[in-house]
Write a protein that binds this DNA or RNA. Structure first.
Length: 267
DNA sequence: ATGGTTGAGGTTCAA
């Protein structure tokens, strides 16, 4: 039995519903995790999503900014929303589901972008990002006995040299500064998480999930970053069948600046 | 070194 989970920063789910429908119709993942839905819970396009066969919907919405959603063909239970840094942002939701007799906790994150200046003394948004990822260290892949774990989302950090188009030129750019990349590796080490994308694609290869809207020609310049991630507890590592990064979605009509990333498991 | 684009909700912020 297989299990497929997609993560996608959608940058307004209401505006982007046509490409969400195209994606779900074509690829049919079991579960889709969205970030930056940019709407209140009651504004979510429930009917359109349910009509596509995704009847189980868990939201943590917010007016205008942020917001995360999990839509699923598989029933979802035990949903939680953690208010990181206690600022009232909708940046996390988690659920438990069951597939092939296995219970899995799924976390969906939208980590703060952190602004432009990588110095918390002059940029509070960068400080917030550092505090947020520090708090994420508490999250253990093995927190619940008998329950496997998957963590996905837009983590807004590209941790490895080949997660950015130029390591050297990006070292002082927010998303690839050492304090962020080391902080992310520390979350993984302390929490016992596996980086499933890098299990599938060697660290020597460039790997991107996001391309800026500001480039004249995103595909030609190809100055991407790997900001979106799929992690799991160690027991799921050997069960990973493949990772698919849908680069072509960056070229769709009215695209998000992030593309869908899907992990498929053989359970 | 700089500026470039997008979305939501309003004449500006966050990304």
């Amino acid at each position: 039995m297989t299990l497929s989970i997609t993560t996608w920063n959608i940058n307004s789910v209401r505006l982007r519903m046509p490409i969400v429908a195209d994606f779900l119709n074509r690829y049919q993942p079991d579960i889709l995790c969205l970030q930056e839905i940019k709407c209140l819970d009651e504004q979510f396009p429930f009917e359109a999503v349910r009509a596509l066969g995704y009847e189980h919907i868990i939201l943590h919405g917010q007016k205008g900014y942020h917001g995360v959603a999990i839509v699923s063909k598989i029933p979802l239970s035990e949903d939680h929303r953690h208010d990181y840094c206690k600022v009232g942002d909708a940046r996390h939701v988690s659920v438990i589901f069951e597939q092939a007799g296995r219970r899995i906790r799924l976390h969906n994150f939208y980590v703060p972008a952190g602004g432009d200046e990588p110095d918390r003394t002059i940029n509070p948004k960068f400080g917030h990002k550092l505090d947020f990822i520090r708090e994420m260290r508490e999250l253990r892949a093995g927190a619940e006995p008998g329950v496997s774990a998957v963590l996905v989302g837009d983590l807004n950090i590209a941790p490895l040299e080949n997660d950015v188009w130029s390591h050297k030129q990006m070292l002082k750019i927010v998303s690839h500064t050492p304090i962020e990349t080391e902080g992310m590796l520390e979350i993984m080490r302390e929490g016992g998480w596996l980086d499933l994308m890098r299990q599938d694609v060697d660290a020597s290869e460039k790997l991107y999930t996001w391309w800026s809207y500001r480039a004249k020609d995103w595909a030609a310049a190809d100055r991407g970053r790997r900001l979106d991630h799929i992690w799991s507890s160690p027991d799921l590592g050997p069960l990973l069948a493949r990772i698919d990064i849908l680069r072509e979605a960056r070229g769709w009509e009215k695209p998000s600046d992030h593309v869908p990333v899907t992990a498929t498991f053989n359970l």
